[in-house]
Design a binder for these strands. Sequence first.
DNA 1: TTGACAGGCTAACAAAGTTAGCTAATCTGG
DNA 2: CCAGATTAGCTAACTTTGTTAGCCTGTCAA
Lengths: 184, 184
Amino acid sequence: MTAPPRPTVRSKRAADILAAARHILEEEGADALTMRRLAAALGVQAPSLYKHFPTKRALEGALVEQGMLELGSALHGAIEAAGRRRVPVSRLLETYRKAALANPGLYRLATAGPLVNEALADGLEAWAGEPFFLATGDPWNAQALFSFAHGMVMLELDGRFPPGSDLGRTWRAGAVAFSYGRRA
Amino acid sequence: MTAPPRPTVRSKRAADILAAARHILEEEGADALTMRRLAAALGVQAPSLYKHFPTKRALEGALVEQGMLELGSALHGAIEAAGRRRVPVSRLLETYRKAALANPGLYRLATAGPLVNEALADGLEAWAGEPFFLATGDPWNAQALFSFAHGMVMLELDGRFPPGSDLGRTWRAGAVAFSYGRRA
DNA sequence: TTGACAGGCTAACAAAGTTAGCTAATCTGG
DNA sequence: CCAGATTAGCTAACTTTGTTAGCCTGTCAA
């Protein structure tokens, strides 16, 4: 088990900005997260934000780091809760779904576009993905299971499933498919 | 088997614009697809484009329709090639992967953000998804399999897998997991 | 022939990220 | 305790982007 990566340390002010940004992101959507809107929420003018983050993408990157850290923590929590036994795939998926849907804006931000993560502490993504390896036992099923979970969350967030779909059952179908450790 | 939806009919000029847009999208990326850049490629000024599409999103929507139609055709082609037998999941996935990665910009456009599809001919999405039902035999495994495929493509396009990953093997792991028609 | 319409044009706006350069406060080293 | 540096704010302004308004010209049908 890899150690959880330490979050980047930031000034109090920078942390406040991130909190405000996150609030706007979740309450009003990604489009509402503009530098001017964010500045206004902090009672400040837009250019002042650049004293704390060099660019909007950097600010988003910091949000992504937070999101990944929280998601990773949730997943590792599920692993630990299982003690010495292997986590059931279904349990891991439930955790993933719940954690991801709890912060839709952040999740989309973290996994949209080619590379918002740039300087994303390198180990972070690997660490967050580790539970999938622990649940499946091999890297290929781990990646496949992760892809399934990611696809489900994205499609669910984007309302891409036909109305009336029993998504719980779809998640369960995936869980069944990836259980019992079959090899490719 | 549902009939393939007819593509929206458009004027010659509108079709030309879409072709140019698609070219820019694939050659230079989504950021390069601006109204001015597109207009320039057509030897025209930006506002002229609004004689043919009411908004940039409408133009993107038309591109998405094209993409979905092509992807759906590829998948249905795989179904037909199997004749009366059920398509192997692995075969369907290979088709999906190949078709999606052949037009990365278009694929991302079609499946990014909450709703680019708006007026997307309603049956189109259902029609494109039908092959997954035919390959798995029930709607829940169909949706789960689709989510897996979608997640794989997105992560692959975004370079989210650790370098050196054997993605072919990951796709195969997914294929194995979703074969043999297990029920949730 | 006349009038509608199709399809182009220029000028311009608003919103977005961002930069430059100023200033007031606060902290720090001698 | 003061001087200089740093911090963190400000205003003004620039660029890029989508988009609108309003004009003009050619084509084609009544």
